[in-house]
């Protein structure tokens, strides 16, 4: 593995538990996309600075798989996603709900993502 990382003629590779999802260019800035990862769903977001964030697509408040379809914004400088269902707002970096609309605090799990050669990868089973 170390040799492939340092040999310029060979493309670097990620371990098998990183799953390739799509070319990065399939994402639009500040508009989410859902991805299917086995039985689970991940919501992907490309932020204006080029950062990619991945959280659960499952909205813990409504039980529907809709987080990717919300509005991306910011609260106090932190990037956020507002669920399109009941409008709870989550911090995209930690998954914490920052506006619960009067409900109990719930959170989205956050998935590790990385990009390699213009492709986007997510770590299977990596949600936390």
């Amino acid at each position: 593995m170390t040799t492939t990382l340092t040999t310029p003629t060979l493309a670097p590779q990620l371990a098998a538990n990183w799953e390739r999802l799509c070319p990065l260019e399939d994402l639009e800035v500040e508009r989410g996309r859902a991805a299917l990862l086995g039985e689970e769903q991940v919501a992907l977001f490309l932020l204006p600075g080029g950062d990619v964030r991945a959280v659960d697509n499952h909205d813990p408040y409504s039980g529907a798989n809709v987080i990717a379809r919300g509005i991306v914004g910011s609260r106090g400088g932190r990037p956020t996603i507002a669920s399109p269902m009941y409008k709870q707002v989550f911090d995209l970096r930690s998954g914490t709900c920052v506006d619960t609309r009067g409900k109990a605090v719930k959170r989205l799990r956050v998935w590790p993502v990385r990009t390699l050669d213009g492709d986007l990868y997510v770590l299977r089973g990596g949600a936390r």
Binding site: E28, V29, E30, R31, S62, A64, N65, V66, R69, G70, I71, V72, P84, M85
Partner: peptide, 19 residues
Amino acid sequence: NATLQDTNDHVMANLQKDG
């Protein structure tokens, strides 16, 4: 301007409780 819209306006349909 597409990124400004909530899902209803974005996909031009009304979101229901199950998505």
